[in-house]
Amino acid sequence: MIVTITMNPAIDKSTSVEKLVPEKKLRCTAMMAEAGGGGINISKAIKELGGESLAIFPSGGINGKLIEDYLTGKQVAYKTIPIGHETRENIMVRESSTNAQYRFVMPGAELSQREVNACFHLLQQLPDKPTIIVASGSLPPGIPEDFFAQLAATAKKLGARFIADTSGKPLLLAAQEGVFLLKPNMSELCSLVGKDFLELEEVDDAARQVINKGECEAMVVSMGPAGAMWITKDGQGQVPAPVVKKQSTVGAGDSMVAGITWMLQQGKSLQEAVYFGVACGTAATMNAGTQLFKKTDVLRLYEWIKKQVAHK
């Protein structure tokens, strides 16, 4: 069973306007609202692919209820940690004249230590033990920076593979605990190896530094238009990113993690999982607002990637 953990969920709202102008009343398109946050996005994406997962997240107030209702409607299984504060909401506005995106991200409700402990209790009491635990996204106020590291330790006790997709100090501490898979971008990889900048040809060596220290068994580095690179102790490979008409980048990283996780759950190799993950991430950029991907787009792009790699 795949379990996703989102400690800073949100209602993601998106709209567009011809041009952002200060001091003016701006006429926007109809607002779209989706349940969001890293792990929730991953669970939504796995469902779109035809898979199943369990989403765990704190929920409070009207927005928390909206997220629960949304996931129920999409038939995504979930368990909540009840909190006494309102779940946050984020807003994304696309300026249609330039296609520029403006993302307004709220901090999230402060959680108590009791609410943090409830997450671990819930995870440990699941009747079906997870095989993969994915923790993704930012941490709200009140959660210790070593939260992902604590999750990594818990995953080991449960015999589950742990995938961490976060940034900053929480990422560094999770790596020090040791995880199965890290998915940093170039900036995050720099922080993991203590460098200010890395050339593309330095990515594999930097990733192996992290792997050889026992901080992860495998790494997938997202490199934007250059695609992604997967690295293990025994091998590596680069996966090209298909060129598509980009509508929005919201949820692209989460979609990539979802594709990788779903394929690994089916026993596929990391290489094949990354091909599929890049297809998912690219497909997500083809949709406007906070929507993720369409499965038909993923399958088409996946076939393109396999052909491109085969011809190299």
Rank of each mutant, 00 (worst) to 15 (best):
A241F: 03
V193E: 05
V250C: 09
G224A: 15
F197H: 12
P240A: 02
F197V: 09
E202S: 09
I231V: 15
M219C: 08
E199K: 12
S248V: 00
C216E: 14
M219L: 13
K246G: 03
M219P: 04
E215N: 12
Q209L: 13
Q236R: 13
T232M: 04
C216F: 10
G227V: 05
G214W: 11
L198I: 03
A218S: 13
A241T: 07
K245P: 01
A226S: 14
D234H: 14
K213R: 12
L192M: 10
Q247W: 00
V193N: 02
P240F: 04
K246A: 15
N212L: 11
G253E: 00
D234V: 05
E217H: 13
Q209D: 14
E202G: 02
M229W: 01
I231A: 09
D196H: 08
C216W: 13
V193Y: 05
V220H: 01
A226T: 04
A206W: 08
L198P: 01
A241R: 03
K245V: 10
S248C: 10
V243Y: 03
G227T: 05
L198F: 00
L200M: 10
E217D: 15
D254V: 05
A207S: 15
E215D: 13
P225V: 07
D234I: 04
K245Q: 15
L200Y: 06
G237H: 08
R208T: 00
D205V: 10
D196W: 00
S222Y: 02
D254N: 05
V203P: 01
K246V: 15
G235D: 15
Q236Y: 08
A207F: 04
A206T: 10
A218T: 08
I211M: 12
V210L: 09
G235T: 11
L192D: 11
G251P: 02
K213W: 08
D234Y: 10
Q247S: 12
M256Y: 06
D196F: 00
I231Y: 09
K233A: 14
V203Y: 01
P225Y: 07
D205M: 09
P225M: 08
M229P: 01
G253D: 01
D205E: 15
A218Q: 15
A207V: 07
E201A: 07
K245W: 01
D196R: 11
K233L: 07
G227F: 06
Q247R: 11
A252M: 07
A218R: 05
D196A: 14
L192S: 09
M229R: 15
M219K: 04
S255C: 15
V210M: 06
G224R: 08
G194R: 01
A218I: 01
L198G: 00
D204Q: 13
G224D: 14
G214K: 11
P225N: 10
P225F: 04
A226P: 00
F197A: 12
L200K: 09
D254L: 11
Q236D: 05
K213Q: 14
K245N: 14
G194M: 08
Q236I: 02
V193D: 07
Q247N: 10
G214N: 11
P240K: 04
V250P: 02
V203H: 00
L192A: 10
E199W: 04
